[in-house]
Design a protein around this nucleic acid. Structure first.
Lengths: 113, 113
DNA sequence: GTAGCCAGTTTCGTTGCGGTAACCGGCACC
DNA sequence: GGTGCCGGTTACCGCAACGAAACTGGCTAC
């Protein structure tokens, strides 16, 4: 594997641009990959609390990763959808998931050894 | 972009297999990509404290990502090197760094808007 | 008038990652 | 016999993330 020496230069910043590794960002993006979802359609499969989900969604909205659309109905309806920018994150995320899937046995074997 | 529907299935676990997003794992791997390094050669460029570096290295050693070789010399000399398994992480890491570099302006623009 | 729906917000408490500072052990040099 | 070098370890601490539970608000249906 040949790697551009400067490929990692932007990883040297104090805090990563997007907290890929935080507990929820990645899962929310994956949950939204097939189309918009409502608050309640995220909270159940993710098994996240309302507070943390709200915080995560707001942060991702601020970063331009997803959009929040509130319809003035009652009971309330709010839909969250990935932006094109958010969609571009699916590819590197897939790379990590593929690595996880491929090397999980190896890591677990190393851990138990 | 076409994505295997099951590609993300392994990301649904409670804790990710490797804490890619933790503050140091990624940087340590990048620091070791050109060959083995000593404790002191990691602590200076990373600007990490001894305690946290030790903890991170031990955890990565447990996971089989790197090896620790202590030479019985004095003053002590210890070298850390990526294993083949650790090297395979460079590729997905590069994907994330590339994303960061490519989309940083977009994110920052969204944040300030 | 009360109960339920949805999408939150508020309050309070816990946990764990990361940081600071001090100390350790063996040798080598002066 | 004191000092420095290297690679740690130990004790303590703060903050941000995470979580549980109760509450809100506006509308609808009974």
């Amino acid at each position: 594997m040949t790697l551009d020496p400067d490929l990692f230069s932007d990883c040297g910043t104090d805090r990563p641009l997007i907290r890929i590794g935080d507990k929820w960002t990645m899962k929310i993006i994956v949950c939204l990959r097939d189309g918009p979802r409502r608050f309640g359609e995220l909270i159940v499969p993710l098994r996240i609390t309302a507070k943390v989900l709200t915080e995560s969604l707001r942060a991702m909205e601020r970063d331009g990763l997803l959009t929040r659309t509130a319809y003035g109905e009652n009971p309330p309806r709010v839909e969250y959808a990935l932006t094109p920018l958010g969609r571009t994150l699916l590819e590197p995320l897939a790379a990590i998931c593929a690595w996880s899937a491929a090397h999980q046995p190896e890591v677990l074997r190393a851990r138990s050894a």
